[in-house]
Simulated scan of single mutants.
Amino acid sequence: MIRYPFLEKNATVGVTAPSSGVSAKGHDLFKLACERMEEKGFKVVCGDTVWTQHKAKSAPAPVRGKEFNAMMGDEAIGMIFPPWGGELLIEMLEFVDFEEIERQSKWIMGYSDISTLLLAVTLKTGLATAHGACFYDLRGEFSDETTGQWLSVLSTKAEGSNIQHSAPRYHKEKKQSEPSSSVFNLTEPVKWKTVSGSPETVKGRLLGGCVDVIRHLIGTPYGDVESFQKGVIHDEPILWYLENCELNAADLRRSLVQMKLAGWFRNSSGLLFGRSAANTPFDGYTAEDMYRELAEELGVPVIYEVDFGHVPPQLTLINGAYAEIEVFEGKGSVRQHFLP
């Protein structure tokens, strides 16, 4: 069964960096994010790894694992919220105390490289995890409606439900790094798309993350989708949500074929793809070609340009939750049910 944490009002948020930390030049903006969280009534506790960054990681893998385990085991901490993603989270998985996670119930939220940890935790322990904004994204005076829903989603009680709608606009051009009231520059109209070109409704247990990194869980003890499907969700279909950070269309295709050959898409009800600034065509082969091929091969709906991933804003998607996705005339909704 799936276990759902509940984010208490005025909880203590633990910030640790299982992937990249914050270099010295980013400390002031990160401190601003801490202040914004405290303005919402939360207490913020930062680990040592947050303040360091050297050679593509915040600290050596055993150090990152130890700090993460300490926060998971600390009863005073109600949520773990990494500053952002990075590159080498996978190094620290062997140092994670998954037995301790099975004794705990607290949210872990993030995206990008953090989705490696999120997916591994849900697959190995049945603890629901949250794919959503990173801590650093919340440094603005206010959040847009889509990003800001993280709080209501994580405050949903077990067996309750929540609904999120497609954003009206998305962020195309990066703002400068100085503080701003809204962080994101939402200028471009959002349009969710389907391979069929028709309205779609898909249902299933959500699983997913950033393809660039979760693909490396295949064949490891941390990527056993088959055991999760049989032993935890009792053969319910999986609704995959996937996003691309840096892969061109051919590399993305290779990665998804690997997932298919590894059995990850067996008994899948559909695939959702987040917006991406990558998806570069290769020799005329495009992401749209790939979406169409996947829909034909798997015989399931494929929906793309959805609000999650590296092109903000993004929905808060819960690994393990039962979801109903509806798309009609470019707009969409995600209703998540916190079913065991």
Rank of each mutant, 00 (worst) to 15 (best):
T147H: 08
I77S: 00
E288W: 06
I318W: 01
K106M: 11
A128N: 09
A70Q: 08
I77K: 02
A56G: 03
N10D: 13
K57Y: 00
S255N: 14
T49Q: 01
A76E: 13
S19M: 02
Q314K: 12
R139I: 13
L261F: 04
V211Q: 05
F265I: 14
S177G: 12
V327E: 13
E75G: 00
A158K: 10
S155R: 15
S196Q: 04
E35G: 00
A11Q: 02
H337C: 08
I218D: 09
K66C: 00
D251N: 13
V302Y: 05
N244S: 02
V121F: 01
G284R: 08
I77R: 08
E8D: 13
R215G: 03
Y322V: 12
E296D: 14
F273P: 08
M79A: 10
F282Y: 13
V195W: 04
A120C: 11
L138N: 15
A262V: 06
I218Y: 02
V153W: 05
V306L: 15
V300R: 07
T201H: 02
I318T: 12
G223K: 07
I114Y: 10
K203A: 13
A158V: 02
L242E: 06
F308C: 10
Y136L: 14
D113V: 12
E67K: 02
L256A: 04
P168E: 11
V13F: 11
R335D: 02
I238M: 05
K106S: 10
Q104C: 13
E8F: 00
V44Q: 07
G140Y: 13
Y111M: 14
R169S: 09
T16G: 00
F338T: 09
M72Y: 03
E297L: 11
F184G: 03
L118F: 07
W51I: 03
C134A: 15
V334T: 05
T280Q: 12
M71S: 04
S20L: 10
I90K: 12
C134Q: 14
K40W: 03
T316E: 03
I233V: 15
V50R: 04
R215D: 09
K57N: 01
G41L: 05
V306Y: 00
V50T: 07
L118I: 10
A17I: 01
L151H: 03
V96Q: 07
P221V: 07
M1K: 02
G26F: 06
Q314I: 11
V213Q: 08
E159P: 00
E329S: 15
W51F: 11
G86F: 03
G78F: 07
A167H: 02
K43W: 00
A295Y: 01
S115R: 09
V213N: 07
G204K: 12
V96M: 12
E173T: 14
V202C: 11
E226T: 13
F95P: 08
S19H: 01
K230R: 15
L206H: 02
G140C: 10
L118K: 10
S115G: 09
G14S: 10
V63I: 14
T122G: 06
A56C: 03
K57T: 06
V121D: 06
S196G: 14
S155Q: 15
S105L: 07
D113H: 10
S143W: 05
Q229E: 11
H54R: 00
Y222A: 10
V190N: 13
H337S: 12
V44M: 06
E297D: 15
P5L: 09
A158P: 12
